[in-house]
Design a binder for these strands. Structure first.
Lengths: 196, 196
DNA sequence: CAACTTACTTACTAATCAGTAAGTAAAAGT
DNA sequence: ACTTTTACTTACTGATTAGTAAGTAAGTTG
């Protein structure tokens, strides 16, 4: 693998494939794009994609693995980890809002959940880990937020975290079917209920 | 079209196709089944499916249209329409719980939202109507429930209805990725918050 | 009884799919 | 300078896709 500057203006081919596949996955679904689509748009032949990702399973797994790495990196960023809980929650909302701004992309979880049973086992496993780690992070944020009085909710932090994340994933899907409005309404409702 | 008893033990072919397509759609996704799959399992040739539904677009649209008819029928059923609001909400939860019991099916909305942009226009339109009518129904239930003191929530009934339905659709997806537990946890959280 | 309709099957097309094998030009390593 | 590795292209396979056209057997209707 070629050594590439971390501030590369032109990403290497492998990254360009992943980026395009991610776009197509989040905008169209996993079963709705092919190696031919990728190759045509990247100006290369389908076999070139197979060189980097022998099978579509490999490509899909790489996509989820990358997103899991991103989650861990984001979560541990000082500008996120050092925030008070209510602002951490707002930062989470901003991530989903940002998806909406990119052609109403759904989140990775929402893109893969419906077709989950057709996915290769490693992809399923990575997606489970992704969702579990994100839920655990939010549960911790909620627990501290309630303890310090900036957040309020009934029930356990774990249950509330699962509920909030599920709602956010669903809200991006509703936004796709209608328009941005229901997403903003739903997130507004979450803010109303959660911020003390 | 042949006249068929309304309590038919053996549904006509068109219905059998719709039933199987619905099963595959809710368990695998719209782009994950073909006319060949349908034909093989029904013991007929793919062209027989084309006879009843000339294109896959027609089949998909028929599926959503049927679900919209079911929603209107269910909503207007005396045993649903005459219930007090808190029991109407519980009846809604029961519908989603029943999906879970059928091999962890997601709801129609959750099955189609991710691939929404790849769907034929009539299917998109029907799905929008379906979601809009269901949300309006729930908003009314919530409004009456709060007014009569059996339900409680902050914000507008419309916003709360959108949030609750989005959460339910998402909860079925989470159940697919993990197991039944998160669904029960999330619905438990909804009950805790909504029932006064 | 004849004509028509219904509900299919058989046989096909053209496109697309994921994936493979062999070749190649350039870059990198020794 | 020689060898190896990288990053592809060309050319192909076999499977699968949605969809069509023509034929047919059974049932329905006038």
């Amino acid at each position: 693998m070629s050594i590439q500057s971390s501030v590369a203006l032109i990403p290497d081919t492998r990254t360009r494939i992943l980026d395009l596949a991610e776009t197509l996955l989040l905008e169209r679904g996993f079963n709705a794009f092919s190696y031919q689509h990728l190759a045509r748009e990247l100006g290369m032949k389908p076999a070139a994609i197979h060189y980097h990702f022998p099978s579509k399973d490999d490509l899909g797994t790489a996509l989820v693995t990358r997103q899991l790495r991103r989650l861990r990196k984001w979560r541990d960023l000082p500008r996120v980890a050092d925030l008070p809980p209510n602002e951490q929650l707002e930062a989470l909302f901003a991530v989903y809002d940002n998806h909406l701004g990119h052609d109403r992309r759904v989140c990775l979880f929402g893109a893969l959940a419906a077709d989950f049973l057709t996915l290769p086992a490693p992809m399923q496993a990575e997606l489970r880990t992704f969702n579990r780690e994100l839920t655990e992070w939010l549960a911790q944020v909620l627990a501290v937020g309630r303890a310090t009085g900036t957040l309020r909710f009934l029930g356990s932090p774990a249950a509330k975290a699962a509920q909030v994340l599920t709602t956010l994933a669903g809200a991006l899907q509703v936004a796709r079917v209608h328009d941005e409005t229901p997403f903003q309404v739903i997130v507004g409702q979450l803010r109303l209920e959660l911020f003390a």
